[in-house]
Amino acid sequence: MTLSQQIVTIALCAAGTMLTRFLPFLVFSSKKPTPRFVSYLGKALPAAVFGMLVVYCLKNVNVLSGGHGLPELISIAVVVALHLWKRQMLISVAGGTVCYMLLVQFVF
């Protein structure tokens, strides 16, 4: 990517974000009720989008070669276990990442 392509990419990320933040204030008023389909999407989208982002993070994992996705699988299990135990985002994220780094550097 050239520098100007990078600038456009960052600008588009900012534009997409600003669109989602400013649009409600431009379109809706606090007097009129929000369209039902919009509030439905508000409840239904987040879980689906974060599911998509988890898959996106793992898109380059090859289960047929290398570590066969084992470091990822083990570390995700560690993240989930830590999180169910402590419910502290930082502990879960830090623990899982350290686990993954140790696995890919020393084991696989």
Binding site: V93, T97, M101, V104, Q105
Partner: peptide
Amino acid sequence: EGLDFVMTAMFVVIFL
């Protein structure tokens, strides 16, 4: 090496 897993871990937590 492997630090990029921080993004995966973060999304796994939010998803959970």
